[in-house]
Design a binder for these strands. Structure first.
Lengths: 228, 228
DNA sequence: TGAAGTTTGTGATATTATTCACGAAAACTA
DNA sequence: TAGTTTTCGTGAATAATATCACAAACTTCA
């Protein structure tokens, strides 16, 4: 086995996707092959096997992978068995939507602080963190509540004001939704999600089709209706 | 020049990022070099040049790129000069947040229909599409309003019910936020955005740091405080 | 038991993407 | 004008990622 090698980032990304799919499976599916997994998710079977083999030998030849065991392994690899304390900075519509999203709770992400410049009316659905903390308190609260991850959903104009505060707060990871690419530092790992970029990708594809005909050939498409 | 070649997807993704950065620039910055662009965005200068060279020769040797001209070119490449009609399916918190997000309007994405199972109270900020259409009307409305892109923000349980309707509606592109990977077909290009996956990536990084010490070396970090 | 059928794990190979390195073009300097 | 500096565009080299292909391990069934 090649456990010593550093797994490539794409592999880690796919692990999330595998896990999500495994979780959606009916309870009576006890075992799954790389073939089946790959087919459903439009990956290559060898790729699935290789991804998993980076972390150990989870499969059984002639059989496939035990769904239960595989889920446990991926959870462990991704560190999802540990509870992570999450704070959200900028409680607009998007921040609120994320704060209320139940999917996070299920995966051990615990929203435990909400930061904003002003006190705003809160949705009642938020369990843990039911009030808004003034943003100047951020460094203090990050330390007190041992927040691991900050989600930034502030308007882009506000990014500059809070950047230094966030990066020096002691938080180890940041998920930034503001349309402004924040760079990782030695101490803080930043992931940028840009919703506009996603739409723009689609626009590009549409534009290709508009322009010239028959230009989007040779792409491998999945099995449309096979929704599980 | 190598205009004939098909540009790789990563290139298209970066174009969005270049454009966003160019737009954030002060008006008096007339020209920018691949060096400067790369430094700010943690890319390689040669990569920036190559990305742009796929589409033409936009730069001037010894000078750099005209910011104004470059913006225009990228807008054209991504097809952002054309107005795209967008519908949102599933008007929960996230759907509402996207519907109200002003960044889309600026980029010629026009939210012109909101679909959901039930009529819900609407936020007043939405201009164009100020009421919710019952989801069964989707195929009809997509055709009537010539909707190009559907954004799916339905709960994951609802995906199966609407999948066929969406894919056969005549829409050409889909942006799916439901935590379930939808596959593209010959006629419909799907982009999946999974917010949980993003958090899980961070969890993985945190987990690496937790586990063993000094294991996250050799990564190139950007210039932290250089926010423009 | 043994032969046929599956499916894993992985070395070898192919493909894709990034970075280097340098000639050519433009600008600036004196 | 000639020399120096800057910066592009791009072929070549490198690195990263994905796919192929096959031996080994396991199951099934006669």
């Amino acid at each position: 086995m090649n456990t010593k090698l550093i797994p490539p980032q794409p592999t880690v990304k796919r692990l999330s996707i595998y896990l999500r799919f495994l979780n959606s499976l009916n309870k009576d599916v006890k075992t799954i092959s790389s073939q089946e997994l790959a087919q459903r998710l439009a990956f290559n079977p060898a790729q699935v096997r290789k991804d998993l083999a980076y972390f150990g030998e989870f499969g059984k030849r002639g059989v496939g992978y035990s769904v239960k065991k595989l889920k446990e392994q991926i959870v462990k690899i991704l560190g999802l068995h540990k509870t992570r304390n999450v704070g959200i900075v900028g409680i607009g519509r998007l921040g609120m939507a994320l704060a209320c999203y139940s999917g996070f709770k299920k995966k051990n992400f615990k929203i435990c602080a909400l930061f904003d410049v002003a006190t705003k009316p809160l949705c009642p659905a938020i369990g843990e963190a039911s009030e808004i903390t003034e943003i100047s308190q951020l460094p203090k609260v990050v330390k007190e509540k041992e927040i691991d991850i900050l989600i930034l959903t502030v308007p882009v104009e506000a990014i500059k004001d809070i950047y230094d505060m966030v990066m020096s707060s002691g938080v180890k990871a940041v998920l930034n939704f503001a349309p402004f690419k924040l760079l990782s530092t030695e101490n803080v790992h930043v992931n940028n999600v840009d919703l506009s970029t996603e739409l723009e990708q689609l626009s590009y594809k549409l534009n290709l089709n508009d322009g010239e005909d028959g230009d989007v050939a040779e792409e491998v498409y999945g099995i449309p209706s096979q929704l599980l």
